[in-house]
Design a protein around this nucleic acid. Structure first.
Length: 874
RNA sequence: GGGCGAGUGGCGAAAUGGCAGACGCGCCGGCCUUAGGAGCCGGUGCCGCGUAAGCGGCGUGUCAGUUCGAAUCUGACCUCGCCUACCA
């Protein structure tokens, strides 16, 4: 149960005796002392603990992507977690029950590599790092609820990875198969398709070019949700992420068409070869067929005299993916296999080739090649000297000359002709001649369907998620292999399958589990006979695919996810993190939500209602921060010099949150000065009182009452702007507004205005607005004000966010910009809310305007109420 | 090759159809100080005129367009960043 600080008995203010009253020198702002003291205090009070059972207030589940415990929190972490903390605090000040947990993505390769290198056990290495990062996270002053922490490398967590795996297995969402998978030779591990990046197909972690390997591996059936994953209905996600996921899933509509192998010199033929095409309308233009080199039918169809060349090519194709593919020249290559296929629409025999431009993993791994109307097929046909037959032409005879050369067989066009608009028609296509391509897509597909030779088909680029990893530091896959019973899942009652702690770490390139006899050798849960454990562990993205559910019951031993808590708290209201996980973590997380919902384990099909991608802070050199580049920025030193509050503000003041940019700590002093000025106006409003005439001569010129009214208006206008900026996460302008108010207060400091209630109210509002951004100094100043006023202490962070007064915000006079022909010519002071006629009269009476008009009459007057007047003259 | 985003002072940036450069850094000048890499006050887009207060012109990557009015909307182009890449 959360303790409400406001109900606590009065606790002595930490600085009660020293709270200044205005005379004499005040003590300096000492962030180090203040921050340590308040952090300890908040912890002691349990101020950041959420009461998950409390339903009296609206819930707000806020989540920042949990960190990998690399050992140090760098400015990138600060840049992500600070504004997230501000969001949390702002919502709490609105009376919401805010849950802001934190944990560690504790499995993964660096720990294991460190073990091989330095002999430290991955567990010890990881725990030491976590310890340090907890300390650093605390030093930021975030309102993290540490009671909910999860550490994924703990058996109490990964046991439930295993449990979910078994559920997926039962439901057919997890399966094992032999596949040519991507392998990182440096990390000695397989990778999911999403984890291979760029044109050179490199490992997402270390940048090493990957190679293909044929391995028996475990997969999750992400493709089962391909269609549903395309819909983002009901969730508020940034456009770039939605686009990336949509492209990654890569839906395309077309037809699957059945070709058959033609009888040959040595064979009867008749084998079914399925191809996928988005252009069934060009079926008559197919002049050859291409299979992926790895296509399963290649072996059976290849003519004996072609076997040597075919096998050579297949070998080269695998080598090509192994050797650096940095040479991105698109030179086509391929070999004929000495067999023909029969085109189902006209019975025509076309030669079959294999070529690596056809991918085994996409569609059916086979295509009908229509060189006249597909760039890739065209390029291949030109290279191989294969025929090109045009079957689509413009209806317009004059346009037809564009491709006439092909039809007549004279001359060779420079490229494929891919247009398919309504002004085109089919030619050389038998009974379909004259139809528009779009119509023919329909008619040819239904003709094929009637003949049983094809059907409408939708295919996706998305592949199933390969989760097997040949490494030690991950969740063991709960499977045993029995000589008699084959693949046997470990029964739930025997979970967790624990990682043995006494594994040996040597740079052999093999998982230590493979040579750990006690782990490897086990008995079959079914027959009790001898069996071998699966030695692969799970991809660490498994851990991060459901951790926010675990935060709701981190210690539970009888279930993975507390269904009651899930219903109360999920989905996460706001998720923040980098966009680099768009097609990895964020896609897996959505897959999990859908799969777990179908299994009845959770109630919502989307995990995160709102997503925000913050920008990335680069090193001072403009490059991505990395240890190897040596450009990682450690904020600890800045925190020592300026305090966490200053560092928080500095990071938020840099620019829009979604932008990031190169790190440059020039300017941090400005934020520190800002806090110092707040310190001064709060604790020392009178300074060395500037009595009239003694100081700079600015004192009380406009009269105290008017100045006080102006100050109060400024404070309320600031509140209005700051409140609006919270909604858009516009921290930089929010801080700018607070600076303006502080500067305004500073101008009145030492004058009699600083003795008015308006001054007091303005300072009060300033501190409340500052509280989410700079929690320590605002708490300190708040407590000192309370002590001075003789009030009981109550944390500023449990105060309600103030409301601005509409009537105060409205200005008493405005300076209306006046343009002539769109050029600014004058600023005219007047009362707000005058009629257009009144305004016009005032404006036309102005000297400057009369001079500019020089006797001309405005042909038109544009009034933008409250904003501007534009006089249009010819 | 395709997709998305961005280009504004010396720098980080504001302004998303209505006063371009808020706020901050840096720089310049002044005050205070034994001192200052502290604090306070003032100035600071560029060019021209003026001793000055001030006045005028130009100005948001380039070129066109829409509009009374464009940093903002439209089209083409240039540059940079991110994603993607023989996806049939």
């Amino acid at each position: 149960m959360t303790t409400e600080p406001s109900t606590l008995p009065k606790t002595p203010s930490p600085a009660a005796g020293t709270a200044p009253t205005g005379a004499g020198r005040i003590e300096r702002y000492d962030p180090a002392e203040i921050e340590a003291r308040w952090q300890a205090r908040w912890e002691e009070l349990g101020l950041h603990r959420a009461d998950l059972e409390d339903t009296s207030r609206p819930k707000y589940y806020l989540l920042g992507m949990y960190p990998y415990p690399s050992g140090d929190l760098h400015v990138g972490h600060w840049f992500m977690y600070t504004p997230t903390d501000v969001i949390a605090r702002f919502h709490r000040m609105h009376g919401e029950n805010v849950f802001f947990p934190m944990g560690f993505d504790a499995f993964g390769l660096p720990a294991e590599n460190a073990a091989i290198k330095s002999g430290t056990h991955p567990y010890a290495w990881t725990m030491k790092n976590i310890e340090n990062m907890r300390r650093q996270l605390r030093s930021m002053g975030n309102m993290i609820d540490w009671d909910a922490e999860v550490v994924t490398a703990d058996p109490s967590y990964y046991r439930w990875n295993q449990w979910i795996f078994l559920k997926f297995l039962e439901a057919g969402l997890a399966y094992r198969r032999m596949a040519a998978v991507d392998w990182c030779p440096k990390d000695q591990v397989t990778l999911a398709r999403e984890q291979v990046e760029g044109p050179d197909r490199v490992c997402w972690r270390c940048g090493t070019p990957v190679v293909k390997r044929d391995l028996e591996q475990w997969f999750f059936k992400t493709t089962a949700y391909a269609e549903e994953l395309l819909s983002f209905e009901g969730i508020d996600w940034p456009e770039p992420v939605r686009v990336m996921q949509t492209n990654w899933i890569g839906r395309s509509e077309g037809a699957e068409i059945v070709f058959t192998a033609a009888p040959g010199e040595y064979r009867e033929g008749g084998e079914v070869i399925r191809v996928f095409t988005t252009r069934p309308d060009t079926l008559f233009g197919a002049t050859f067929m291409v299979l992926a080199p790895e296509h399963p039918l290649v072996e059976a169809l290849t003519a004996p005299e072609r076997r040597g060349a075919v096998e050579m090519y297949q070998f080269e194709a695998t080598r090509k993916s192994e050797i650096d593919r940095l040479s991105t020249d698109r030179q086509k290559s391929g070999v004929p296999i000495g067999a023909d296929a029969i085109n189902p629409v006209n019975g025509e025999r076309i030669p079959i080739w294999i070529a690596d431009y056809v991918l085994a993993g996409y569609g059916t791994g086979a295509i009908m090649a229509v060189p006249a109307h597909d760039e890739r097929d065209y390029g291949f046909a030109r290279w191989a000297g294969l025929p090109i037959r045009q079957v689509i032409a413009p209806r317009d005879a004059k346009q037809a000359s564009f491709v006439a050369g092909q039809v007549a067989g004279v001359g060779i066009p420079g490229s494929a002709y891919v247009a398919k608009g309504d002004d085109h028609q089919l030619i050389n296509s038998g009974e379909f001649d004259g139809q528009s391509p779009v119509a023919a897509i329909r008619t040819i597909t239904s003709w094929l369907e009637e003949q049983g030779k094809g059907r409408l088909a939708v295919i996706y680029r998305l592949r199933d998620w390969l989760i097997s990893r040949q490494r030690y530091w991950g969740t063991p896959i709960p499977i045993v292999y029995c000589e008699r019973d084959g693949i046997v899942p470990v029964p739930e009652s025997q979970l967790p399958v624990e990682l043995p702690m006494d594994a040996e770490f040597r740079p052999t390139g093999e998982s230590p589990l493979k040579s750990h006899g006690a782990f490897l050798n086990t008995t079959c849960p079914k027959c009790d006979g001898p069996a071998r454990r699966e030695t692969d562990t799970m991809d660490t993205f498994m851990d991060s695919s459901w951790y926010w559910w675990r935060y709701l019951s981190p210690a539970a031993t009888d279930h993975a996810i507390d269904r009651r808590m899930d219903e109360r708290w999920c989905p996460v209201d706001q998720y923040t993190g980098g966009a680099e996980h768009a097609v990895m973590h964020l896609l897996y997380a959505r897959f999990f939500a859908k799969a777990l919902a179908d299994l009845g384990i959770v109630h919502e099909r989307e995990p995160f209602r709102k997503l925000f991608n913050q920008g990335q802070i680069l090193g001072a050199d403009g490059e991505r921060m990395s240890k190897s580049r040596g450009n990682v920025q450690d904020p600890d030193e800045l925190v020592r010099r300026f305090g966490a509050d200053t560092v928080r503000l500095f990071l938020m003041f840099m620019g829009p949150w979604d932008q990031g940019g190169p790190w440059n700590e020039q300017g941090i002093g400005g934020l520190h000065r800002f806090l110092n000025r707040i310190w001064t106006v709060t604790l020392d409003p009178h300074g060395r009182e500037r009595s009239a005439g003694a100081g700079s001569g600015r004192v009380e010129a406009p009269g105290e009452a008017e100045a006080a009214r102006g100050l109060r208006a400024a404070a309320h206008r600031t509140l209005q702007a700051v409140t609006a900026d919270h909604a858009g996460f516009r921290w930089n302008t929010m801080i700018a507004h607070l600076m303006e108010l502080t500067n305004e207060l500073m101008r009145h400091r030492g004058t009699s205005v600083a003795r008015t209630p308006a001054w007091d109210e303005s300072v009060r509002l300033l501190l409340l607005m500052l509280a989410p951004l700079a929690p320590h100094i605002s708490e300190e100043l708040w407590s000192r004000r309370q002590a001075t006023a003789g009030e009981d202490w109550r944390s500023i962070h449990t105060e309600r966010w103030p409301a601005y007064e509409e009537s105060v915000v409205l200005p008493e006079t405005i300076e209306l910009p006046v343009q002539v022909n769109g050029k600014l010519r004058d600023l005219v002071p007047m009362a707000p809310g005058l009629s257009e006629i009144e305004i016009e009269q005032i404006v036309l009476a102005r000297d400057k305007i009369r001079a500019t008009l020089a006797g001309r009459q405005p042909a038109r007057v544009i009034h933008v109420p409250g904003r501007l007047v534009n006089l249009v003259v010819r």
